[in-house]
Write a protein that binds this DNA or RNA. Structure first.
Lengths: 344, 344
DNA sequence: GTGAAAGCGCTAACAA
DNA sequence: TTGTTAGCGCTTTCAC
C-alpha cells in the first residue's frame, strides 16, 4: 500500500493524505480521522526511502564499530551503549545504522556514510588519544557526538564522558587511606583515552602522598580475564608483591581474584581488590571493594544522552557543542582488609 | 556532488555516468576510466536513498534487538554476532539497521521495517519456544534468518543453530563417566530455546544411565554471575550437594567458581565444573573443565553465516530455506577431580 | 481546507 | 556505446 493507492481509495489527493498523516494543521479534523483510520486499516506506513529523498533527511544515525584484529573483538560496554541510544532513537522515529569495519577502513566508512547521505549524524565510539576521526568528522560537517574524549583536544566538538581520572584518583586515595603502599593498577590498553586518564588519576593520588609509582605494578592490556590473571600472578610473585589491586574492569577483576586465590591469599584480608561492579549486594562480605565508573546502567544512560545530543544538533545545527563530564557514583564498600574502614 | 552535477561536469549523460559507476558492460573502457577518476576526485557516492527508491531495494538488513525489562539487558553473545554479520554486510555493500525495542513492541517493529521498506531482510535474535515472530515474518514475506530455533516448529524457515542438546548430552555423559552422580545444571531462562535444549540434553544423558534427575540441582535463570553464585551456594548447602556443575555460560561459571571456593571446596578435586570457554590455555591445570558450545568466534561465524543466508535469499527469493545445525567443538579438558580422565 | 504539479537523485526501459 | 525519458513514493510549494 502506498500513498497513491491510499489516497485514491479515500477519494482524496496525495497531498491531503500526506498532510493528515504528518499532523499538518490545515487539514480538517474529519478528514484527518478518516485518513488515520484508513492508514491503520490498510497498515500503511510511508516509505522511508521516498520520504528521505523528498525531505533530504535520512532519519538515521550512524554508529561505526571498529573491529580491530589487534584489540578486543568487541568493546564490552558497546552493547549497553547501543541499547541506550536505541531507546532514544526509537522514541524519535530515528533508525540506527551500524557499520562494522576494520579499523583501517574506518575513515572510509565515515566518509561513505556522509557522501551516500545514509545518516544525519554520527556517534563515535572508543576515542583514542588525538583521534584523527575528530578532524575528519569536522571536515565532513555531519553532526557527531563522541562517547568519551580524544585526549586533550580542545576543539569544540560534542562529547559525553565519565570522569575517569577523578574516579581512579579517589579509589587510589581510598586504598592509600587504608594504609596500602604497593597498589597495583590493572588497566586497559593505554591508546584508549579512558585508560590513560585512569592511570593519570592513579598516579596523581600516589604523587600527592609521595608514594613512588612502581612500573612493575602497572599493566595496560586488553581487558580480558586472562590478561588480568597473568599480570596479577606475575605481580604477586614479585619480592615486593602488591597488597592491593585497582582494576579497570569487572572482567579483569575476576582474573585478579583468581590469581589471588591461587596464590593462597585471602581477598579482603591479605589483599584488597578495588574494581567496578553493578551489584554491590554480595560484596559487603569482605570479598572485594567495588568502585563505580562505568556500570551497565550508566553506559546505557550515556548512550541515551549521546543520542539526544546528536538529535538536538540535527534539529538545530547552530547549537553549540555539548560537553558533559559525568561524575561517577564512586561507591566503595566495606573492606575487611588491612586497616579496613567504611568509606562512602 | 550529485549525479547530475558530475555528469554535466564530464559532459556526459547521467545514464552513462551511472552505468559506468555501476559496472555495466556497455560502457566503453575509456569513458569508464574518466568517470571513475572524476567520481573519486570529487568524492562522489550515489545517494543511497535515491538509489533505493529507484531500485526498490534498500540495501539494508534489519536486526531487532528486544530489550526486556525482565531479562538480561542485552544478550551477551549479541555483540559478537553483530560483528560477524557486519563483516558480511560491508563486504556486500549492505547496511545493518538496528532496532532496539521493548519486547512488547517487537511485533510492531518488524511490521514497520517491512511497511516502511527500510530493510530487504531480517535477522531474528534470541528465539523462544513457539516464537510468534516466525508466523509474523512469514506473513510479512520478507526474507529472514533465525539465529537459533523456535522450538520444534517444523515450518520451512531458515535458521542457523548450535546443537545445544547434543553438546550438553555429551558433557553430561562425560561427567557421568567420571563417576559423578549428583550433577547440577546451571542454565539460562527456559523460555529461551537454547536453554530448553540444553536441559533436554542433560536429562537425556541422565536417563540413559538411570540417574534420577534432581530438581533441586537444576536452576534456570538469567545468566549472570550473581544468579549462578546464589544457585550454586544453595545447592552446595544441600545435604546431598552436587559433585559437579554443568554451567550454561562462562559468566555463570565464574559465579559457580566463587561459590565453590567460598564453601572451602577445591575445584577439580572436590567438585568438577564443566563450562564454556574461549581459551583453554589456563584450564589444563585442573581448575575447571571447559566445554565449547557457543564461543565468541563461533558466534561471530554464525553472524556471518546468517547474514550470508539472508543475502542469498534476497538475491534469489526462490531459494529453499537453509537450516544448519552446527555441531560444536566440544573440547573437554583434563580434570583432576574425582575419577578424572582425559576426554576429547 | 484541498488539490495540482514539481522535484528529491537515482535507475532502467527504450531509442538512437 | 550513448542519450532521452519515465518513473520510484513521498513532501512541499503554489494556486484555488
Amino acid at each position: 500500500m502506498n500513498l497513491k493507492e491510499l489516497s485514491s481509495l479515500l477519494g482524496l489527493s496525495q497531498t491531503t493524505v500526506s498532510r493528515a498523516l504528518n499532523g499538518y494543521p490545515e487539514v480538517s479534523e474529519a478528514t484527518r480521522q478518516k485518513v488515520m483510520a484508513a492508514a491503520k486499516k490498510y497498515n500503511y506506513a510511508p516509505s522511508s526511502r521516498a520520504r528521505s529523498l523528498a525531505t533530504g533527511r535520512s532519519m538515521a544515525i550512524g554508529h561505526v564499530i571498529p573491529i580491530s584484529s589487534k584489540h578486543e573483538m568487541v568493546n564490552p560496554i558497546f552493547a549497553d551503549f547501543i541499547a541506550g541510544a536505541g531507546e532514544t532513537y526509537s522514541r524519535s522515529g530515528y533508525d540506527m545504522l551500524l557499520s562494522v569495519v576494520n579499523d583501517e577502513d574506518e575513515e572510509a566508512a565515515y566518509r561513505e556514510m556522509a557522501t551516500k547521505g545514509s545518516v544525519d549524524g554520527i556517534i563515535v565510539h572508543g576515542p583514542r588519544e588525538n583521534d584523527p576521526r575528530i578532524e575528519l568528522l569536522m571536515e565532513i560537517g555531519l553532526p557527531f557526538v563522541v562517547h568519551g574524549r580524544a585526549g586533550n583536544d580542545t576543539r569544540p566538538y560534542s562529547w559525553v564522558d565519565i570522569n575517569n581520572g577523578h574516579s581512579f584518583r579517589r579509589a587510589t586515595d581510598f586504598l592509600l587511606d587504608l594504609g596500602h603502599r604497593r597498589i597495583a593498577l590493572i588497566n586497559g590498553i593505554e591508546s584508549m583515552d579512558f585508560a590513560r586518564r585512569r592511570r593519570l588519576g592513579y598516579e596523581a593520588a600516589l604523587a600527592a602522598r609521595n608514594v613512588r609509582p612502581r612500573p612493575e605494578l602497572m599493566s595496560a592490556q586488553e581487558m580480558t580475564e586472562q590478561n588480568a590473571y597473568r599480570s596479577a600472578r606475575e605481580m604477586l610473585a614479585l619480592p615486593e608483591a602488591p597488597t592491593a589491586f585497582l582494576v579497570s574492569s569487572y572482567i579483569s577483576a575476576i582474573g585478579v581474584r583468581r590469581a589471588v586465590s591461587q596464590a593462597g591469599l585471602k581477598i579482603g584480608k591479605d589483599v584488597s581488590i578495588v574494581t567496578h561492579d553493578d551489584d554491590l549486594s554480595y560484596l559487603r562480605n569482605g570479598d572485594e571493594i567495588p568502585m563505580f565508573t562505568a556500570t551497565k546502567s550508566s553506559v546505557r544512560a550515556a548512550g541515551r544522552r549521546c543520542a539526544e545530543i546528536v538529535l538536538d544538533h540535527i534539529a538545530n545545527p547552530d547549537l553549540p557543542p555539548v560537553q558533559e563530564l559525568w561524575e561517577t557514583d564512586l561507591t566503595l564498600g566495606l573492606s575487611t582488609g588491612p586497616a579496613a574502614k567504611e568509606f562512602t
